[in-house]
């Protein structure tokens, strides 16, 4: 182990290590945090021990035979013995078959439970796009983290804006593809142990930032605590109650703009779209933007408006990789975005 420690990257911020794998002691499966986790784990351990038994049997016999019957001299006569034994062969056909039927049934039985959400679920609408999560709670509040409280069955109703994604919460044993063009559903009911934070991954390959498309699940103690958080984190005054650019920043953070547009420096910073700081500079200086079809346009309010509404109409040169989805901003929101971009002028 020391060898590996020496090779390690600079010390890791413990905050980055998700709970569930933070324990120093080795655990094969993540901790069970839902009422349904044992449905996955019990057959897992059954299959595990069956496998260990057969593995030891096969490899043990193999090693034993290799040693016991090793050929000491090339002149030895070939081995002798039966060329077949039908009862024996039927036996090792039927026994694995029976074990397989047990595994199948156990797995199916659990699967039915996992696939059937109870009727008293708290529903969360999940919208994914490359490479961000959006959770829409009852009442319409949106956030990029999944929050719930102990003991509450939660149903995720999921859809994707672009490509396949997959919700994966290892501690909850939840995994379900999110398919564009249709809804898919997943559910879980947390136990008392689940209090705190958990990892949530995208498990279906979705391109560049697939591995950063993760967020956390936060389990509160009570519904009251959850609602308190919900109010604090997601209720915000409407655009009328704040300066336009402040509203614009809210949108930048919440609508997924942040995943492709840098708002700190003029370079792309590894993101796919043009930096908004650069855009702001062009906007205030009346600069031009060149497009892949060799045309160009002055960066003004109309251009930004068009880029939001018809992102694929003209692709800025150098940003061919970008793939901005259409969006649902109304005119006030667009005003706010433009106001926010102007604020970013260096």
């Amino acid at each position: 182990m020391n060898l590996f420690n020496l090779l390690q990257a600079p010390p890791v911020d413990l905050q980055d290590i998700p709970p569930g794998v933070r324990e120093t002691s080795f655990s094969w499966l993540p901790p069970q945090m839902t009422t349904t986790a044992h449905i996955v784990d019990s057959p897992f351990w059954f299959v595990f021990w069956v496998c260990v038994f057969f593995f030891v049997l096969i490899v043990g016999l193999m090693m034993y035979f290799v040693i016991k019957y090793r050929r000491r001299d090339e002149s030895e006569p070939p081995g002798e013995g039966a060329t077949h034994n039908t009862p024996l062969e039927v036996a090792w056909t039927v026994i694995p078959l029976l074990l397989a039927v047990v595994m199948f049934y156990w797995g199916l039985d659990g699967y039915v439970a996992l696939a059937t959400p109870p009727s008293n679920c708290y529903e969360v609408n999940v919208t994914t796009q490359k490479w961000s999560w959006n959770f829409r709670y009852e009442g319409g509040a949106e956030h990029d983290e999944l929050h719930t409280w102990v003991g509450q069955p939660v149903k995720l109703i999921m859809r994707s804006q672009d490509v396949l994604h997959c919700v994966d919460i290892p501690d909850f044993r939840v995994k379900m593809d999110i398919v564009p063009g249709r809804y898919t559903v997943a559910w879980f009911e947390t136990t008392q142990d689940a209090l705190g934070e958990h990892r949530l991954y995208c498990a279906e390959y979705c391109g560049q930032d697939h591995s950063s498309m993760k967020t956390k699940v936060v389990v509160h103690q009570t519904r009251e605590e959850f609602e308190e958080w919900l109010v604090e984190a997601t209720t915000y005054p409407g655009p009328a109650d704040m300066p336009l650019h402040v509203w614009g920043k809210q949108l930048y953070l919440r609508k997924g703009c942040a995943s492709c547009h840098n708002n700190e420096t003029e370079d792309q910073d590894g993101k796919q779209g043009p930096s908004w700081v650069e855009t702001a500079k062009l906007l205030t200086e009346g600069g031009m933007r060149e497009f892949t079809d060799d045309t160009s346009a002055k960066v003004d309010e109309n251009y930004i408006n068009e880029s939001i509404m018809l992102p694929k109409k003209r692709i800025a040169k150098g940003y061919e990789k970008g793939n901005m989805p259409g969006n649902t901003l109304n005119s006030i929101d667009r005003d706010a975005i433009i106001a926010y971009i102007k604020m970013l002028r260096p």
Binding site: P43, F44, I58, W106, D109
Partner: peptide, 30 residues
């Protein structure tokens, strides 16, 4: 050939985990 026996024992047996529906939910795409 012996390496095959060893590896195929592991490869084949771990397939059982993935064939078991409920277990696969946890292991799929990992």
């Amino acid at each position: 050939a012996l390496g095959f026996m060893f590896n195929f024992a592991i490869g084949g047996l771990t397939g059982l985990f993935l064939g078991t529906l409920s277990v696969d939910i946890h292991l799929h795409d990992t």
